[in-house]
Amino acid sequence: MEFNPTSASVETEGCDLHFWYQGTGPLLIMIPGGGGIGRQFNLLFEHLDEQFTVCTYDRRQTNASKVNENKLMNPAQQARDIIAIVTALGRQKTSIFANSGGGIIAFQFAISYPEFLDHVIAHETPTTSLLDNSTYRLDRAFQLVDTYRKHGVRAAFQAFMGEMKGYQDYVPAEVLSQEDAENFWENEYLVFTIYCPELRKIVENGVSIAVAAGLASEDAFYAVTTIHQSEILNCPRFIFPSHHSGYEAEPAAFAEKLLAALEHMEQKRQLT
């Protein structure tokens, strides 16, 4: 159906966490990456809501989910935020689709709270410590933070986007506010870039998990990370349409691939 979600909020750990949902069936929570604005997934709702109750949210201290004082992002706390949403919706389990840095939160959730999970798909999660050139990526991360501190948000994003692939002539549907962009560079970017949850613990937990990369992302570092993730997790690696923001660029095709991936994972789980 057309995008017409129900909006709600839940108070958790000092944050009025705003979320919205639409559809019927099992719960599917979509975790946004850097900047934390859930509306980047809105174009997917109408393509998923016949199979799932689709839900997304503004991560804490972004957009509508305000806190009294912004702090360095804590993946453990962000994982607990998902439990707050699941509980508020009266559910016991959820599947998760997470993009970019949101995948760090999804991995952490799979480590800490596997009992709440049906399936997890992490799309282009930047676990740079797994890369062959991890030392370069570590230096690069701190260089970009220095650029932000010396020259501001615009300069940092310009340098950052220089490493993104498949974005030629692409105009994003959603743009971060100045406040959310500053919070990204001040409190999120380094955590998302250099923190890698212990993926082997996810295997021990028996979580149904997969990773995905965008077709147009080619050999961008955040796509190459998914190869290493799939090897450690011993899980499927799907190729989704378009680039890092394929859910906005090609929402219908992206949703079709996402549904097929979740169906594949469910069939595999039923056979085990």
Rank of each mutant, 00 (worst) to 15 (best):
L259F: 00
N70V: 03
G102M: 05
S129Q: 15
F107A: 14
G90C: 08
T12N: 15
E263T: 11
E188C: 03
F107I: 00
M73Q: 13
D139I: 01
G246K: 03
D58A: 02
S245N: 13
I202E: 00
Q168L: 04
Q158A: 15
G34F: 05
I37H: 04
E124K: 06
N4L: 12
K257A: 15
S129L: 10
Q229C: 14
A220P: 03
E204L: 04
P197M: 04
E218F: 10
D81C: 09
R91G: 02
T94P: 04
L199P: 10
R91W: 01
H228V: 00
A260F: 01
P251G: 05
S230E: 06
A122T: 05
A253N: 12
E11R: 02
T225M: 09
L215Q: 14
E204D: 15
E174D: 08
D180C: 03
V120W: 07
I202K: 03
M30T: 05
Y189Q: 08
A260K: 03
V203Y: 00
T6D: 08
N42F: 05
L215S: 06
T135H: 08
T127I: 11
R140D: 12
L258I: 06
F238V: 01
M30H: 01
E263V: 01
P126L: 10
F192V: 09
L259E: 07
V211M: 03
L130D: 06
G34R: 07
P114F: 06
I121T: 04
F142A: 05
L44M: 13
H244Y: 12
I104Y: 00
V153Q: 10
Q22Y: 10
A76V: 13
L131T: 02
P126S: 09
S242C: 06
I104Q: 14
T125D: 01
F52D: 03
G166Y: 04
K66F: 00
Q229D: 03
S208R: 09
S245Q: 09
